[in-house]
Design a protein around this nucleic acid. Structure first.
Lengths: 127, 127, 127, 127
DNA sequence: GTGGTCTAGACCACT
DNA sequence: GTGGTCTAGACCACT
């Protein structure tokens, strides 16, 4: 399930966050379902449990999962709503920024180029 | 030189700011050169001098022009550097935001669409 | 400045969060001002730097402080606004809950008692 | 038995729910006992039977009464336990919130004030 | 078994 | 010097 690159420049806990979000988004895990325990995932990925916990903590803060001490971590019922709202917020910010750039006389082609670079870099970092 | 659309939804002083920035960017006015006085521009464009002053003040705050009391407003020597630095800052922010959007699993096509909408809306407002 | 009780049932990082919030609230530290570095505080309080960092991270997430890597942690300019907004939100929630309790036929005296217990327990935990 | 204020800002079905809960709490009706039928109460209070039914449905959902088709509505055997558990839950929530407010440095006097306001507003609404 | 806190110590990047 | 990540391992409370 999880694919972590320990040599990547992206911190392990960020990779974990990203992957859990993708699992929720793609339906690999369903709302209400339990996700791997801190310890079992720690063993499976050969990663320190504290690092797993750091990722799970951040995901809890984002309202995507919640812990039941003594039982484990579970996907929040409204996790998908949270994710789609995040997406909407990000795109709205992008719109405002693009409007500003348009006013500053920056061509659309330049924006496209910057975006392409960002998307390619994102792919590179995961290699 | 100046082309102001009084009927536009964009405030006149913003149109003025934008145009002065473009004049600096395209070399219509050179660093160190004087720009039209508040009064003369007010008469030429049939616009309230307070509006002109508001635009000139904002441009001064941005480090693009400076006033010499009793003589008028002049383009700053480093105005172009300021503008290109602004541009760099904005594009850098765009890059960071695009990286974030990439991580959130949002496709490049969606970004392009949002940007197109922003650029078209910007064009419309000037009509 | 900081007074930490290692034997308390309240986790050290929570005690740290609380104290920094109080320092901001009471003006012991001012907006924009730097707070003790993770390492110096670690030495001063004989506490592991990771624990200090955990508290500082949480305070950053709450928008009260921000880090400048290589330089240190600084109180956000609007830290006090954030705190007073938090307070308003909490009191609003209390109001709603009290209305609900009133409808459920619970006497005001009972609420007072619960509140007193909570406030006393809070004091005890710090001893 | 029932005292309904048609002019109140509180919806009639909520007044009905509140009163049935109070009857159970004070022993006006006992566990297992039948309560007035939808039709008879509708006539007695000159209120639309649908409104009565809405209140009875909500009380059923709360586990306080249950319908016996063809015979009427009866107070659940454990209705008092349910009510006292509700009360305990609400007071527990209040306790947690008060602890949070204590940590946020909000004085007990402020809490008392908010509670008083809530209790007075509740009284007003019934006038 | 589960989550959660903390320590000691290594190592990295940045100023 | 500064923040930030990670490991190995201990210990606690809860189910």
């Amino acid at each position: 399930m999880f694919q972590i690159d320990v040599m990547s420049r992206i911190p392990i806990y960020e990779q974990l966050i990203e992957q859990v979000e993708k699992f929720i988004l793609t339906g690999t895990v369903s709302p209400g379902e339990q996700i791997p325990s801190v310890r079992s995932l720690s063993v499976e990925l050969s990663i320190n449990p504290v690092t797993i916990l750091k990722a799970y903590n951040e995901l809890s803060a984002r309202g995507l999962i919640h812990s039941v001490p003594g039982r484990g971590y579970f996907v929040c019922t409204d996790a998908r709503d949270v994710l789609s709202e995040n997406k909407r917020d990000l795109l709205e910010k992008l719109y405002e920024m693009a409007s500003e750039l348009a006013l500053a006389g920056i061509s659309k082609a330049e924006l496209y180029e910057v975006i392409d670079t960002a998307y390619n870099a994102d792919g590179d970092k995961r290699k």
